[in-house]
Each structure stands twice: as structure tokens, then as C-alpha cells.
Design a protein around this nucleic acid. Structure first.
Length: 267
DNA sequence: ATGGTTGATGGTCAA
């Protein structure tokens, strides 16, 4: 099973780019974040035309929104609410016996202080709640893949400068610690870092605000694919589609792909 | 220390 996750930053605007990446990488399952499309306006026909006959989406007007596109049937579609908000950040479905979870963690605003910045407080609460939810509702022997924009770059090699980003939201010690707690909830394995050694710098996001993202390569690894220990032995490969950041009218995030050696029906 | 860009929206808000 080839799983692709991408913060697409408007699905409707970037359908042609989705088509391009699907043609190039042939994923079986696609997890999208920041679809920015209400469910009533979801472009299902266009997604089916890309080969995804099975679609789950959880969207709202203007912001957020998650979706799972699959070549294989989806079962048990669920949309857990987070922090008592209906803000469309979590979607889960079962594909070929594997639970696929698509997650969009709040970005957290600019100021890394939960006392003065409610967005940062929400982000910290969200991370705590998700960790507790997995701990209470799952066990590590269940085959689950958790993919999405976690909006946290946990490792020193996940940012262009560890020292310079210590007080920048996405790499502050409090967020990294909470993401660590979330990872510990089910002993999640970072599938991408299981393939690409943690010594290597690896980014999945580059700010739109930089006039030339390639000049200093000031990126961060905000997008992740984790698997439970039950699936860790099935991880066969991982890829960050860095070249997509150079497309015309790109998302500020690029797709991340993980290959899992699991039996698929009809193959 | 500051400002820089993009997308949805139709004024700003979120990232």
C-alpha cells in the first residue's frame, strides 16, 4: 500500500497538481489536509477521475478540512471532534484492514505563549487530547497509520536551524515534548525517519514568505506518517516530494509518501 | 527586530 499525505492548502485550487502527483507516484491512499472546501462542495467527481472511487471528507467553509481518497474500499469512516470544536481536523477510515488516520494539528499562531496566545493554547490542548484519545481507545497491536500535518518539527534535523527556531512555534520544547507524549501513546513509529536516517536534514514545508525558498532552504518537517508497532515491520520506503515546492502556484507543503508491505485485495 | 506571501472571502482571518 502506497500512502501519500499532503497539506494541499485548497483542494479545489490545486486539483491539477493533485492529478500530477497522483500520475507520478500512483498512491493507493491519499490523505489531504487544509482542503478548505465544505462537504457539500467537495470535488468528488474530479477525485474519482483520478482513480479514487472511495472518498471520505470532513470539511468546512474557508479553513481546515481533511479528506481520504482511496483506490480500495473505505470502511468505518469516523470524524472525531477535537477540543469540543467542529473544526474538521481528524478523519479516520479502514482500508484493506489498516486504519488510516488523517490529522491536521492547529498551527498555533505566532507567539509561543499559551497565556497570551489562544491559538497556541489550543494547539497544546489538541496535542494532549489526541495523545490521551489514542492511549484510551487503541492498543499498539492494532494496525494503524497516522498521517498528516502535525505542525511540529520534532528533531533538530527537522528544521533549518535548531537554535534559531527554539522559540518559533512548531519547534518549541513544549510542543516537541507534547508530540513526544503523543508518539508514546501507542509507541508510534515515525515511518519516514525509519527509512531516512534522522541525521539527514529533511523538510516538508517552506514558508510562502520567503522570496526564494531554494536560496537558503529554510524549511521544516511538519508533515508526518506514523505507524503503530503492529505495522512497523511493513514499512518499505519513504519519500518527500520536494520538487513539488517548485511547481507553479504550489502549496507551501509538499507530499510525503510511505510504502507499506500489506496485502491488498485484487493485487 | 521586523516583515515578508498565500488562500478563502468579500472584511479580515488563518497559516
Amino acid at each position: 500500500m502506497r500512502l501519500l499525505t499532503w497539506n494541499i492548502n485548497s483542494l479545489r485550487l490545486r486539483l491539477p497538481l493533485l492529478s500530477e502527483i497522483v500520475a507520478a507516484l500512483a498512491p493507493d491512499v491519499v490523505c489531504l489536509q487544509e482542503t478548505k472546501v465544505p462537504d457539500a462542495l467537495f470535488p468528488s467527481d474530479a477525485c474519482r477521475a483520478l482513480g479514487f472511487d472511495h472518498i471520505a471528507h470532513h470539511g468546512m467553509k474557508g479553513y481546515n478540512g481533511v479528506a481520504i481518497l482511496s483506490r480500495l474500499p473505505l470502511a468505518d469512516i469516523r470524524t472525531p471532534s477535537r477540543c469540543n470544536r467542529e473544526d474538521c481536523r481528524h478523519l479516520a477510515a479502514t482500508v484493506a484492514g489498516i486504519e488510516i488516520h488523517c490529522l491536521y494539528v492547529p498551527a498555533g499562531g505566532d507567539i509561543p505563549d499559551p497565556e497570551t496566545n489562544p491559538k497556541f493554547a489550543h494547539k497544546l490542548d489538541f496535542l494532549r487530547e489526541v495523545a490521551g484519545w489514542y492511549r484510551n481507545n487503541y492498543t499498539p497491536d492494532r494496525p494503524v497509520a497516522l498521517a498528516g500535518d502535525f505542525n511540529v518539527a520534532p528533531l533538530e534535523t527537522d528544521v533549518w536551524s535548531h537554535k534559531q527556531l527554539l522559540s518559533v512555534v512548531s519547534h518549541t520544547p513544549v510542543e516537541v515534548a507534547l508530540l513526544g507524549d503523543m508518539q508514546a501513546s501507542l509507541d508510534w513509529v515515525d515511518a519516514v525517519r525509519a527509512v531516512i536516517p534522522p541525521e539527514h536534514k529533511l523538510f516538508t514545508w517552506w514558508s510562502y514568505r520567503s522570496p526564494d525558498w531554494t536560496r537558503n532552504d529554510r524549511g521544516r518537517r511538519l508533515d508526518h506518517v506514523w505507524v503503530t508497532p503492529a505495522l512497523a515491520g511493513a514499512v518499505r520506503g519513504a519519500l518527500v516530494a520536494r520538487e513539488c515546492r517548485s511547481w507553479t502556484q504550489p502549496s507551501d507543503h509538499v507530499p510525503v509518501v510511505v510504502d507499506l508491505d500489506v496485502p491488498l485485495p485484487g493485487r
